[in-house]
Amino acid sequence: MATCKDCKSFFAREDDRSQGDCVMRVVDPRQAYYQATPVETEKDASKCSSFQKK
């Protein structure tokens, strides 16, 4: 099963390796930004449409 830690967008937290940030590049009609959403390292990513294997 693919988990978040296997994804290119995942960055583990140094103070707690069981948690991390899913960092995505977003370009909306007005501006571009990077968005970080907290995720668990072992979260099932098999249904994630943004998953990109490391």
Partner: peptide, 16 residues
């Protein structure tokens, strides 16, 4: 989120 070129952080909500 961090908007390109920005230097001051913080927003109320998940996206701009």
């Amino acid at each position: 989120f961090i908007t390109d070129r920005s230097q001051i952080m913080g927003y109320i909500g998940s996206a701009p």
